[in-house]
């Protein structure tokens, strides 16, 4: 499938009705999703006939994109029932056999004091999921809201545990060096494939501007042992 055609289909994916700020629910645009999955499929052969997972799948945009590019099976995980309901409607509409699970892959870091509360990956939960998929594609929460600190790294940790081959993820460009070092400490090597502008439309009351572009990196990670 051509990139433009993929983006065209993805524009039919329904997004959040009432996005929840505490979950940092910013929809992945059709434009971005198409580029992420198209690259994974055509430059690295990480999608076609592969087992794919989407962590924090929201309305299912990336998972549906993966199906359109020939993924063998996709599992979407999210914490929010409303988002999963929309994802389910999208899945029916596109007639793709994506499985959804309502789950929380993070928990509060037990070593933290309240003032520095942050989230880490739930390792006990992840142990059984270890190496159960080929590829993870995700647009994780960036961890910029109070109480969500560290959630982007918790998602990356989870993704690296699940995937045998590769992880595709979006992270704020301002955290690039930190992410590279953190991935390395987990035995993975990350490569920035592209710098993208993540267009955050005015969705929440606290947004003063009509829309804001955030500079984000599209990363591809793989385990060093691969």
């Amino acid at each position: 499938m051509k990139l433009n055609a993929l983006e065209g289909y993805l524009q039919e994916v329904r997004v959040f009705d009432n996005p929840k700020v505490h979950y940092e629910q910013y929809p992945t645009s059709a434009h971005l999703a198409a580029r992420i999955v198209y690259t994974a499929a055509n430059s690295y052969d990480d999608i076609e006939d592969k087992l794919v997972a989407d962590l924090g799948c929201g309305c299912g945009m990336l998972g549906i994109a993966a199906f359109l590019m020939g993924a063998g099976h996709v599992t979407g995980l999210d914490i929010d029932a409303d988002a999963l309901g929309i994802a389910q409607a999208n899945i029916s509409k596109f007639e793709v056999p994506m499985d959804l699970v309502r789950s929380d892959i993070t928990h509060p870091n037990p070593v933290d004091q309240d003032a520095t509360a942050s989230l880490i990956a739930n390792e006990a939960l992840l142990r059984r999921l270890s190496k159960t998929v080929d590829t993870v594609v995700m647009n994780p929460p960036f961890g910029t809201k109070p109480g969500n600190k560290g959630i982007d790294m918790a998602f990356l940790r989870a993704a690296l545990t699940l995937a045998t081959t590769a992880v595709y993820s979006l992270h704020k460009s301002s955290t690039r060096d930190y992410i590279r070092a953190k991935a390395k400490s987990w035995g993975a090597t990350g490569q920035v494939l592209a710098e993208l502008r993540f267009d955050v439309p005015q969705m929440y009351k606290f947004h003063k501007k009509k829309s804001v572009d955030i500079q984000v990196d599209l990363w591809r990670f793989q385990q060093d042992s691969c």
């Binding site: 309901g85 959804l100 309502r102 789950s103």
Partner: peptide, 8 residues
């Protein structure tokens, strides 16, 4: 529920 297991 509706095909979605809730593990929370």
């Amino acid at each position: 529920k509706d095909g979605i297991p809730n593990m929370l």
